[in-house]
Design a protein around this nucleic acid. Structure first.
Lengths: 189, 189
RNA sequence: CGACACCUGUUACU
DNA sequence: AGTAACAGGTGTCG
């Protein structure tokens, strides 16, 4: 079995969270876990005010932005039909009809959808939907990280191939988006 | 500041609901909340099969029928342009041209429009349109009552001036249009 | 074509 | 119990 480093699939698990969703002071968090078969990169961040769906979108946007390689083969796992169907079914129509929904009203979160659209075109991406909270380990991890971020607890993580477990450190402030250089390099290698 | 009881404005918030609108077994509900500045009367009912617009019309018809006073000053709040524009712009034309629409075809729901036309002439009525589901408290109340009625859940409510809250009781059957005598008298007084 | 309303479904966030 | 978002549909009028 030969392994070609250039065709390695990058897997991204994304999730968003939002406490008091719908209120003016809703506190959101997002997280993405990237894997290339060897190493792992974990990033997360928070925002206020926001919505649950904006955080789901942010998780994917930031996850894709963390990929250095050009034209990578990416497999995305999300539990949000809003994100999965948005990317695979609705986006093309929206671009064709001037970002209008089926009821004629403007598509919401259009800023994020347009940013996402640009990122999607840079790679070959498979979008996989997984039911939330179904025990899928990487999805659970992204979920916990997003929830932690929504509480203002950033996560700084480096993992190495063969490591028994990640090294976690609490960060002080909210809004933390820490991408450890070592892990980042490993993913994009 | 003097208050003349005879010039008190009666406010009516109306709303209709219709589950499976457009199907042969559509279940509808309507509701009207009347206020005279002191007391409140809540009425609701259900029908099957029907349409969303018929229920919007029924809500107003039953609301107006609940007014005992002759030649009252009434302010109606509806979220239906069909009802609001129907009453203020289209009705006169329809009566003049033999109930024909602008495309020459007959006006639908003529039975209800004619009943409404007769009721409108008995009072001085202001028609106010409010956007649905915009947090307008009385409109929200009418909306919930109409939805409950479409599910066969009648609401029996009496409210008194200075009462801390309404007294609610579930009624057994569907199609319930209960107008508590005490509240009714207070409204029409 | 436009407008308003009424839903049906799905997922997520709490 | 609620909000955030999307798809599909009908009821009605000008």
């Amino acid at each position: 079995m030969t392994t070609n480093i250039n065709t390695t699939i990058i897997t991204i698990y994304v999730d968003g969270s939002c406490r008091n969703n719908g209120s003016d002071f809703a506190q959101g968090g997002w997280a993405a876990v990237l894997e290339n078969g060897q190493d792992q990169l974990r990033i997360s961040g928070s925002e206020q005010p926001t919505t649950n769906n904006r955080m789901e979108l942010m998780a994917l946007i930031e996850g894709l932005k963390a990929i250095r390689r050009e034209n990578a083969h990416v497999r995305v796992f999300t539990d949000s039909k809003y994100v999965q169907k948005g990317c695979t079914e609705w986006l093309e129509g929206w671009k064709r009809n001037g970002w209008k929904r089926s009821d004629g009203k403007p598509v919401l979160n259009v800023d994020l959808w347009q940013e996402l659209d640009a990122l999607i075109q840079k790679h070959t991406i498979e979008f996989c939907w997984v039911k939330g909270h179904n025990g899928h380990p990487m999805n659970e991890l992204a979920d916990r990280m997003a929830t932690a971020a929504s509480h203002g607890r950033g996560v700084r993580v480096r993992t190495y191939a063969g490591n028994t477990g990640p090294v976690k450190q609490r960060l002080s402030g909210p809004g933390n988006v820490f991408t450890p250089p070592v892990a980042r390099e490993k993913v994009s290698a």
